[in-house]
Design a protein around this nucleic acid. Structure first.
Length: 291
DNA sequence: ATGGTGGCCCGGCCA
């Protein structure tokens, strides 16, 4: 079984790329983030035409998460199972509450509990958005601890907007004092790992210079100045079944315009189906340096 | 060079 996660940065803007990638990578379960769609606009027929069932949790213009599965899709939960939040005032200090936003959907697919997660960006350390990010990550930790067990098949996938170690960023010195690398954010990821989740890509790839997100600006992708912030985290029974994992750098290249994130793939059981993930000869991306 | 790109959808906001 192949599970993948991909922040598509708008599903309607990415439909052609998503269809091409599904045909190329043939995931059994695809976790999507940043669909930027309302539930009423969710493209169920598009996914059904490709052989997938589709569950979407959106709010329109921002955020939005979804699960496409061709191995069953049951027991859908959104927003950690909490009731819809009332409208949140975003102007005042300490009023930022990402809990009400469309950032979490979970389901059971092919005997595996999967969650598609879009962690708040946090903007900057001294903002209420950062404190909201930490609160959201704490809610995620509590949801995992209260509703799952480390010995059952569970996969958390998505855009975590955290680089867990300095090996996951192109230049740690440039990011000091910023979000994505702060100690509290990394502690929130450690909480998940300490509970029993395993970073499936890192399990198969100990090397650095492998990222899942590159800024659109300033040629960051071409210089391979990126961060590894998209993950598939699996419990021990999932890690034991994981025969391979890739970040598909090919999906970040070319036209039509790609997302700024690449898909992360993990294969459970069997040999998997090999594909060139675009990191260059011998699987190593040749870093190019700007003038 | 204190920039740059891209998506929301048309004036800035967000990443």
């Amino acid at each position: 079984m192949r599970i993948a996660t991909w922040n598509v940065n708008s599903l309607p803007a990415r439909l052609e790329r998503v269809q091409g990638w599904i045909e190329r990578a043939a995931p059994d379960v695809l976790l999507l983030q940043e669909t930027k769609l309302s539930d009423a606009s969710a493209p169920h027929a598009f996914f059904e035409g490709l052989g997938y069932r589709f569950a979407h949790h959106g709010q329109g213009r921002w955020n939005g998460v979804a699960i496409a599965s061709r191995v069953g899709l049951e027991d859908v939960v959104v927003r950690f199972g909490e009731p819809p939040a009332v409208a949140v005032e975003l102007e005042g200090e300490e009023q930022v509450d990402p809990m009400g936003e469309a950032r979490m959907i979970a389901a059971r697919c092919g005997g595996v509990r999967v969650a598609s997660l879009y962690v708040p960006n946090g903007r900057a350390l001294d903002t209420p958005h950062y404190r909201g990010k930490l609160a959201w990550l704490a809610r995620l930790g509590r949801w995992v601890e209260e509703t799952a067990r480390p010995d059952e098949p569970l996969v958390l996938g998505g855009d975590f907007n955290v680089a867990p170690s300095d090996l996951d960023v192109w230049d740690p010195a440039q990011l000091v004092g910023g979000t994505h690398v702060s100690e509290p954010e990394r502690a929130a990821i450690s909480r998940l790992l300490d509970w029993g989740l395993v970073d499936l890509y890192r399990l198969r790839h100990p090397e650095g210079e492998r990222y899942s997100w590159w800024d659109y600006r300033a040629g960051m992708f071409h210089k391979n100045y990126g961060m590894r912030i998209d993950f598939l985290f699996g419990t021990a029974p999932i890690a034991a079944r994981c025969v391979g994992s890739e970040i598909d750098r090919e999906a970040r290249k070319g036209k039509p315009t790609p997302s700024d994130h690449a898909p992360v793939v993990a294969d459970l059981d069997g040999p998997g189906v090999a594909f060139d993930a675009g990191w260059g000869a011998e699987g190593r991306f040749e870093k190019r340096r700007g003038k």
